[in-house]
Design a protein around this nucleic acid. Sequence first.
DNA 1: CAGCATAAGTCAGCGTTGTTGACTTTCCAA
DNA 2: TTGGAAAGTCAACAACGCTGACTTATGCTG
Lengths: 165, 165
Amino acid sequence: MADAPVGENLLFLTDEQLRQGIEAMFFAYRGFTSDPDRILATLAYGRAHHRAIHFINRAPGTTVNNLLVLLGVTKQSLNRVLRTLIEDGLVESRVGTSDKRERHLYLTEEGKALETRLSDAQRARMRAAFRAAGPEAVAGFRQVLEAMMDPEMRRRYHAFREAGS
Amino acid sequence: MADAPVGENLLFLTDEQLRQGIEAMFFAYRGFTSDPDRILATLAYGRAHHRAIHFINRAPGTTVNNLLVLLGVTKQSLNRVLRTLIEDGLVESRVGTSDKRERHLYLTEEGKALETRLSDAQRARMRAAFRAAGPEAVAGFRQVLEAMMDPEMRRRYHAFREAGS
DNA sequence: CAGCATAAGTCAGCGTTGTTGACTTTCCAA
DNA sequence: TTGGAAAGTCAACAACGCTGACTTATGCTG
């Protein structure tokens, strides 16, 4: 916010620059998802399964309600994914202790194994991109992405930053 | 590649940093698509229509084959989208002059109007994010996104940069 | 000219993942 | 004890990917 560069250096706000940013997001997101997608395709799972596994791994014991708000999907949509993951023994659902209506979600050993496999693939690409671009570019990358989030999602993103590190 | 910073400044390649990068991409992409999605929902169109409209606008006269490679979808999937856009009078399909097997795609006035509407919404968010982060961050953002693309997509992305500016 | 290749379009069917709406069960808290 | 929150379920639907099989029109090559 505050003091953006004044005067001549606003070329990065050109219509053409903005369109290129949009296209960069589109093509980069394709690359971003392609490696896990290839693994998932061999397992009869999809991206929704990956996302559930990712966030359960990041926040073990999270409730179904937490998860569906985080993922931005309906209870019914998440439930379909969770059911198959539980049936297949990748996720464990434990009844809450303080509030027994809640279900707390955990990855099983098998679930952790798949998480590692998916994450390794995705992190390898991210690592290569970070290494190629250098630390200053990475800082800029994160700043722009953060500014692009809805405020509520930015809040949740920060919650993970604190919990994870 | 080349000379990455040596020694202590490799914190940006930490496992935790990479995971945060992954989550940033996820949350940011949600924001990135949310504004056009809201408009499209009122029109019985989806993201696939938006993507087709976007790239036809960027490369008027492109062929169906060009477009499906660019979008990374099958002919059948693209055709379903194009058919509705042509029926609704947003896209015009002209038989090729040199090669009559080809169909060249153009936005009609109505198509351009919708493109503008969708693009305005998406660019507004991108502009706000760029402004908030500043030009150096934007440069880094683009560097990292580019490094994250598959090489073939990076080539196509550059083709647009040259054609567009 | 014959025959193969290419571009496009179409039909049928399927899977994943999102949606709404309606409903039940469980259980906490006022 | 009663209202409401959390979770789960069933049904139906839409968007948008996919494969496979096929047709039509056209271009190119031997």
